[in-house]
Design a protein around this nucleic acid. Structure first.
Length: 296
DNA sequence: CGCATTTGACCCGCGC
DNA sequence: GCGCGGGTCAAATGCG
């Protein structure tokens, strides 16, 4: 433990590019963010919202990296492997498997879908075992890879790091973050690909039940395309999907072009794994989607 | 002072 | 049953 977390000095945050894939998305289920918080862990609905029952194969995007993302034309990045896929969780060789699986049978795992977790909290006796025994509830997860110098990409939410661990098949530590919103159970794991240190693998677990925190535009805040992309995917898979379709069939989007912020510098492989209303954050949309595409 | 990060310990599930 | 490895906790520490 000595390495990581510190972006190389001078590294200007983002760089590189990637192509990406996504697991497919089935909308619906949650009508508002508040529903999520209200339900406080209504895993069933969350699961539905995530739509993990959709096989990765349904991915409209071409095979391995065939698709390179929002008009990332000259994306020099390894257009091959960027992937975003529902994770089956545990016992998986992090990056390697993620990459490997992104192309094939992820469907089986996703369709298998983690049963709404019996989650019958055993007598919530406020003892230690409860905290931990809280049954490592398996919330749907999805991961995506971003070629970036920095580990913790800004995504519009505030995260508190609660742990860091060295993982077996990687020389890089894995960091664990939790949304600072007390009612929000979303977690996030960040690690670097052992194969390509320039790639950051971010795994989200759960879904935000609140809007993004203020996003200081124009500030020193890292406001990259990648960050925006992440936020978009997290906040609105539908929109995200549209954006993707748009990319593939410009006609869908009225032939407009995607914002330039998506060209160059930082590219992110994204999933469309969540379902929730759009964030109130206009900035994000402004970056990601042409006004005409916004559905609200 | 409040909040975020660090870090060692602990817990838990899984494979052997 | 045991050991391993991943995930989480929580006290200590740092920082704005």
């Amino acid at each position: 433990m000595d390495d990581k977390n510190q972006p190389p000095p001078g590294s200007d945050a983002h760089s590189g590019g990637t192509g990406w894939r996504y697991p497919g998305y089935v909308g619906g289920g949650i009508s508002s963010l508040d529903d999520l918080c209200a339900g406080e862990e209504d895993e069933a609905s969350i699961l539905k919202a995530f739509g993990w029952s959709i096989p990765l194969d349904s991915n409209p995007i071409g095979e391995d990296g065939g698709f390179r993302g929002f008009g990332l034309d000259d994306a020099p990045g390894p257009s091959s492997a960027m992937a975003a896929a529902p994770l089956e969780d545990r016992s998986d060789p992090p990056a390697a498997s993620l990459l490997a699986r992104s192309g094939d049978a992820v469907s089986s795992s996703s369709s298998e879908e983690p049963p709404p977790e019996p989650d019958e909290k055993p007598a919530e006796t406020a003892n230690k075992s409860t905290k931990k025994g809280q049954k490592r509830s398996r919330q749907p997860r999805f991961a995506f890879m971003t070629k970036s110098e920095i580990d913790h990409l800004e995504d519009g939410y505030r995260w508190r790091k609660y742990g860091q661990k060295t993982v077996k098949n990687s020389p890089y530590p894995r960091s664990y973050y939790r949304c600072t919103n007390s009612k929000c159970m979303v977690k996030k794991r960040v690690e670097r690909s052992p194969e390509d240190p320039t790639i950051v693998i971010t795994t989200y677990e759960g879904q935000h039940c609140h809007h993004t925190v203020s996003f200081p535009r124009g500030s020193a805040y890292v406001h990259s395309a990648a960050a925006s992309a992440e936020r978009l995917a997290l906040a609105s898979p539908q929109l995200y999907l549209q954006a993707m379709q748009f990319h593939q069939n410009p006609a869908v989007g009225g032939g407009q072009q995607l914002p330039q912020t998506l060209h160059g510098e930082h590219q992110t492989s994204l999933p469309a794994g969540t379902s929730s209303p759009l964030p109130t954050d206009e900035g994000l949309l402004g970056d990601m989607v042409p006004p005409g595409m916004r559905n609200r």
